[in-house]
Design a protein around this nucleic acid. Structure first.
Length: 341
DNA sequence: TTTCTCACA
DNA sequence: TGTGAGAA
């Protein structure tokens, strides 16, 4: 396609298209006489450029967007993720301010305001720098091996495959449903669905893990993202599964994660979670006491290193949102949670 | 027709 | 961030 043809098709002028080339957004080939020749792919990118321009992005921003891995859609998702983070911060600020207003009306002392401000600041920091303390990028190669080797006196992966299998069976998906696996890791759970030709989007915050997942199950749609901002539209998923992932989020963020799941899940959709948790606070204390008594340092270290959930708290949250919840405990720390919206 | 360059808002 | 005009 020559330049005027493309311009007409996209409702712009040849001049503008050349301008975008000057800014490094398209690279058409040239004919013998020096005329620009546009391929179908070039037209596509130009279309994207025009669209992004329309939304107010600068050519420089568009350039970085185009260069990002995952292309435009990857960029859009990361933009969404950034905005979502901001939105959460603003929401935190509003609740904190509401509390201050309330406190002020009751003629509270200044300390409580300062206290609140401090709490807000810490929350903000936590949100801003959730970091992968466990370094999953480095674990990608060895993760599957680690599942097989049982711990000395404490094996977090006991009943691992049972749990994944049970999730798959409970979800009971058909091949025209859209699934999502959050914190897919090396894709063990995702694989169970892929084997049966059930479309599933595998999400992980570790790009190395995603590579490994793609290697094991090439047909998987892998996407970079994390619990607090999932790269999916509202109500896009028919079912959500997640295994051995939620315990990497602090408790207050777990509820945000559930809210985010709720956002992408269609009405009547299912959530199935397998994770290390305690039934409730007293259960947690009892188990830890027991471990102390028996001197099982290994287990205590493992538990303290992560954020095991309280099953009842998650259950309550889901029920408040109108989910019908069913639970199943496989061993002292492994719980399954099935919820229907 | 198209390209390139300089200038302009 | 574009656009206009003129020369080739």
């Amino acid at each position: 396609m020559k330049i005027t043809e493309v311009a007409r098709k996209l409702n712009t002028t040849p001049r503008t298209i050349r301008f975008y080339e000057e800014k490094g957004l398209v690279f058409p080939g040239k004919t013998g006489n020096g005329y620009r020749l546009y391929k179908e792919a070039d037209v596509k990118t130009l279309q994207a450029v025009l669209a992004l321009r329309e939304v107010g992005m600068s050519t420089a921003e568009i350039k970085t967007a185009l260069e990002q891995e995952g292309g435009v859609s990857g960029f859009l998702h990361s933009q969404r993720s950034a905005l979502y983070k901001e939105m959460l911060q603003i929401r935190d600020m509003i609740t904190a301010l509401d509390k201050m207003i309330e406190g002020n009306e009751k003629d509270a002392r200044e300390e409580s305001m300062i206290e609140l401000a401090g709490k807000l600041k810490r929350l903000k920091e936590k949100r801003a720098n959730w970091q992968d303390r466990w370094n999953f990028d480095d674990q990608a190669e060895v993760y599957d091996q680690n599942i097989k080797t049982t711990g000395y006196r404490f094996n977090v992966h006991e009943n691992y495959w049972d749990a994944l299998q049970m999730i798959k069976e409970w979800v009971d998906a058909t091949s025209n449903e859209q699934g999502v696996d959050i914190g897919t890791g090396t894709g063990n759970l995702t694989g169970l669905f892929i084997e049966e030709d059930i479309p599933i989007i595998a999400i992980d915050q570790s790009k190395e893990m995603l590579k490994m997942c793609k290697k094991k199950f090439p047909r998987t749609d892998t996407r970079h993202g994390h619990f607090l901002s999932l790269p999916l539209k509202d109500h896009e998923a028919d079912f959500i599964v997640s295994s051995y992932a939620l315990h990497h989020l602090p408790d207050d963020e777990k509820e945000l994660a559930l809210a985010e799941m709720d956002r992408i899940l269609s009405d009547g959709g299912r959530i199935a979670i397998a994770d290390l948790m305690f039934k409730n606070k007293t259960d947690k204390q009892q188990l830890i006491d027991h471990l102390y008594k028996t001197g099982n340092r290994e287990a205590i270290d493992a538990i303290e290193d992560e954020y095991y959930a309280e099953q009842t708290r998650i259950m309550k949250w889901l029920e408040n949102k109108g989910y019908k919840v069913q639970v199943n405990q496989l061993n002292s720390i492994l719980h399954l949670l099935f919820a229907r919206k």
